[in-house]
Write a protein that binds this DNA or RNA. Structure first.
Length: 858
RNA sequence: GCUCGGGUGGCGGAAUAGGUAGACGCGCAGGACUUAAAAUCCUGUUCACAGUAAUGUGAGUACGGGUUCGAUUCCCGUCCCGAGCACCA
């Protein structure tokens, strides 16, 4: 390699990338006296398309932080890996006839080449791949833990199933505060007399990994079950075939047990408000009451959930979801046919169709319920605007104070009774819209009259509880997490069935068998079901579903901590050293998926004592998207993809890194601009030339002037403040200002340039390393020490005050920085420009803000 | 419809415990070096009006109000853009 006086980035970058790898520069040890820092990127799904310039945006940001932290004396864990199981690989396999393992491996290789060119400081010794049996062995093991635990609501933690069966043997399922979906009540005697099969059937309702009846998207034409993202507008994304909803038994994880803790934990993490808000909405906690209504001339009770028990006096009818099991039982003979027909149609409607129907529909059941507060008989209807899956699947309708009920009541001419007087508006009858505000006073409401909504809610619940017709109740929108996919390219379940009873396999990993065809079976089962030899296990019939894409990604951040451990998912010593992720960088599209599931798994593993913390990611930053130059999303389809390889070849990795940071705030979406990169490229050239005079290396040992020190320390201060705030665009401009100023001073002094190199090292690691070595260092710059700024160098003797008259700046006058405000005041009042503007009038007031501004009020 | 962000030059964007709006870069215009080009460097660049010019005056951070000596920053209202949720009782 030549020691050219020119900035030959291609040679320089290739040389250092190779040296860093040879020296294992970024490999990190778990044994260190230094404080730890764990900075993580969301690992990529290795698609066939490779990376475009939008992908590395977050990686560059986190790499800067990782390098900055290392220079600041931290032991930094900064790993990378691949989320390698998933649908696209499987689809690609079906299309091309190549095994997904083969295409995935090829894609990973390509990703790695692209990543390597950008000069990241990943510790590749810790790489994980979710499709690697040595990795998914532990994914299966954690699934097994979920299977073998239940949730104790009193202790607010997961406990072993053994402790649950011990309780059953003594008390049945009474005196138990478990999170479950068991509808039966049984005694110890009953439990003890049950067969193993029957016991298992009951236990399924308590296990944290359990078999649930869920609705799936079934596409008959494709002969397969589709994921939600594969269904667009009610038809399959591929082919456009009709998709229907079908009930199916599959594995689920009981995430709802953790709903409250998932909410509470959000208050303890440093995430954006928007992501926290999305998760809160998704969990959807609402407080209210469950209340039983009696049906006239019938023994059936209708239990409803309401958040507004204060409006009970205004409940003028009821609505049951069409799926309600006892719907036909309460119907009057005349109405039964109509109700049954309506329920049938509603059941076959897809979610999309239901949403598309903005008009309310419904049928009267012929039954009447008694409003427990007014004692009036109110009609019971059925309508699909009441969702079977939420609350009790039945509501008391208060049309005066609920928009949906109002719409329905208006359409079917049901009575509307107002019971809340809104705070500032008079009620005009008949109502033109529902008065849904919670700001008001009860009237027409018996014992609730005169109370505020908030007071009345509590009083009504107390009354309902006293009468024994209801209880206080909290509901969640959050659903159990479906955990089965009828696909090939995923983790097999470590489960076999014996007479339908699931049993955990303990020889892990259960390896994914090779198959001839990954095509759908046509029956809706996974392609694994066609492998009759594999399915027959000595202990029973294997589960043929595989785990969803999010299984492996729900805990990968723990495996990086101890990636090669063969005895446990990660050793406790290493876990205790690295603990939770300090900084996590990735896209916001994972708000309700990966980020929620990871929190759930972390809390579960915490309950079991494997880890001491219960939130996986302390700080979360969502990088924005980089759009194409046309302002559209970067994609093959628009032909606007910019490949980082090309940018590296033309301008170098350091320019790419700097430019991506310079584009704007990390979190914002912004368009790529090919012209703009020239400016950054020029800047690096100018930076390089700071060390040269023509073709001659020109760095001197002269002592720096105060002015030069000021420039340097100003930059140290700015960059040291910017990096922790992830404000990288302003750091880059600070570097530009610094280099511009040093260039005009012709400063070639090592005492100034050397610290500047260290400041630049996290942003532009190659050029900094090269110049550092040309300064004569044999150690890597990336093991140097971050410079500290000295306030003494930033001191100014004088400040040029902007002088404004009535708030408008008219001139500037310099005063000593320690000048007395009174001196300044009398001095400026004699200034000719000030005199010109005051026009001889006496100023009413003169405001002097020290070292900021002077304002003269006339 | 509801919730959360956000509207600053031709463009990407700086500056908010209220204190010189437009840093830095792109683009554009002019110039230096060169036979020429590339590279590099220098000067100017919010808008309008006046002036040959230095410069001066006025307006200006989506729009309309308010608080303040002073508002891009704080408060109220309106409009627009983006993201999320969407019959969740």
């Amino acid at each position: 390699m030549s020691d050219s006086h020119q900035y030959q980035f291609q040679e320089i970058e290739a040389k250092w990338q190779q040296k860093w790898a040879e020296n294992n520069l970024y490999s990190v040890s778990d044994n260190s006296e230094k404080p730890k820092y764990y900075v993580l990127d969301m690992f990529p799904y290795p698609s066939g398309a490779g990376l475009h310039v939008g992908h590395p945006l977050g990686y560059i940001a986190s790499d800067i932080v990782a390098r900055y932290k290392r220079l600041s004396g931290y032991n930094v864990l900064h790993p990378m890996g691949y989320d390698a199981f998933g649908l696209p690989a499987e689809q690609y396999a079906i299309q091309t006839g190549q095994h997904p393992a083969v295409t995935t491996e090829a894609n990973i290789k390509r990703f790695r080449e692209q990543l390597d060119k950008i000069g990241f400081s990943f510790d590749w010794n810790r790489q994980v791949k979710t499709c690697d049996p040595q990795y998914y062995k532990w994914t299966q093991w954690i699934f097994g833990l979920f299977f073998e635990h239940w949730y104790d609501k009193s202790q607010q933690k997961a406990r072993p199933i053994k402790e649950l069966t011990a309780h059953f043997e003594v008390h049945g399922n009474q005196n138990l505060n478990a999170h479950h979906n068991c509808k039966e009540i049984f005694s110890a005697e009953t439990w003890n007399s049950l067969s193993g099969e029957a016991k298992e059937h009951l236990l399924n309702h308590f296990r944290l990994a359990f078999i649930d009846e869920t609705t799936v998207n079934w596409c008959a034409e494709l002969g397969t079950v589709l994921a939600n993202e594969e269904v667009v507008n009610g038809v399959s994304e591929r082919g456009g075939y009709p998709v229907v909803r079908k009930k199916m038994k599959q594995w689920s994880l009981r995430i709802t047990a953790y709903a409250d803790r998932l909410l509470e934990g959000l208050n303890r993490v440093d995430w954006t408000d928007s992501i926290k808000e999305i998760q809160r909405n998704w969990i959807g906690r609402s407080e209210g009451a469950e209340i039983d209504f009696q049906i006239q001339n019938h023994t059936q009770l209708v239990r409803v959930f309401t958040t507004r028990p204060d409006t009970l006096f205004g409940a003028t009818y009821m609505v049951l979801a069409p799926e309600t099991s006892y719907l036909l039982d309460i119907c009057s003979p005349e109405q039964r046919d109509a109700v049954s027909k309506y329920a049938e149609i509603a059941k076959n409607k897809s979610e999309i169709e239901r949403m598309a129907d903005t008009q309310k529909t419904g049928v009267f059941t012929g039954a009447f319920a008694i409003n427990p507060f007014t004692q009036e008989a109110i009609p019971v209807w059925t309508s699909d605007y009441v969702l079977a899956g939420y609350g009790t699947g039945a509501i008391m309708a208060v049309p005066a104070h609920d928009e949906r009920d109002f719409e329905f009541a208006t359409k079917f001419e049901l009575p509307i009774t107002a019971v809340i007087q809104p705070k500032d508006t008079a009620i005009e009858l008949p109502l033109k819209e529902a008065l849904s505000s919670k700001d008001g006073i009860c009237f027409n409401s018996g014992f609730l009259n005169g109370l505020t909504v908030k007071e009345a809610i509590n009083k009504a619940i107390e009354e309902v509880e006293n009468r024994g017709i209801g209880t206080r109740k909290v509901n969640y929108k959050l659903r159990e997490a479906g955990f089965g996919r009828q696909r090939y390219w995923g983790e097999p379940f470590p489960i076999v069935y014996n007479n339908g009873t699931p049993q955990l396999l303990d020889e892990l990993p259960v390896e994914l068998p090779k198959v001839e065809s990954y095509k759908p079976t046509g029956t809706g089962e996974s392609p694994l079901a066609a492998l009759s030899e594999w399915v027959q296990h000595p202990k029973g019939k294997r589960e043929t579903d595989t785990m969803p894409g999010w299984a492996g990604s729900s805990w990968y951040f723990l495996r990086y901590i101890d990636p090669n451990n063969e005895n446990v998912f990660a050793g406790s010593k290493s876990l205790e050293y690295w603990k939770q992720v300090d900084l996590y960088v990735g896209g916001s599209e994972h708000a309700t998926g990966h980020l929620l599931y990871s929190r759930f798994w972390t809390k579960f593993l915490h309950d079991l004592g494997y880890i001491s913390w219960d939130e996986p990611f302390q700080k979360l930053v969502n990088q924005g998207m980089i759009m194409g130059e046309d302002g559209q999303k970067m994609s093959k389809r628009w032909g606007n993809v910019v490949n980082p390889d090309d940018v590296c070849a033309q301008y170098g990795a350091d320019t790419l890194r700097l430019y991506e940071m310079f584009l704007g705030p990390l979190e914002d979406s912004k368009p790529w601009n090919t012209n703009g990169i020239e400016g950054v490229s020029r800047f690096l050239g100018k930076f390089w030339r700071l060390f040269y005079e023509g073709e001659q290396w020109a760095v001197t040992n002269e002592a720096p002037s105060p002015e030069e020190l000021k420039i340097l320390h100003k930059t140290i201060k700015k960059v040291s403040e910017d990096i922790p705030q992830m404000s990288f665009n302003t750091s880059v401009s600070a570097f530009m200002v610094c280099v511009n100023e040093l260039t005009s001073l012709k400063c070639k002094k090592q005492a100034v340039l050397e610290p500047l190199l260290v400041l630049m090292a996290p942003f532009a690691p190659h050029i900094s390393e090269e110049l550092w070595s040309r300064l004569g260092h044999s150690d890597s710059i990336h093991t140097a020490v971050w410079p500290k700024y000295d306030e003494a160098n930033l001191k100014e003797d004088s400040f040029s005050y902007p002088i404004s008259i009535n708030g408008k700046t008219r001139t500037q006058i310099a005063f000593a920085t320690d000048a007395d405000p009174k001196e300044i005041e009398s001095a400026i009042l004699e200034n000719e420009i000030v005199l010109k503007w005051t026009e001889g009038k006496t100023p009413k007031k003169v405001i002097v803000v020290k070292n900021r501004i002077v304002n003269v009020v006339v």
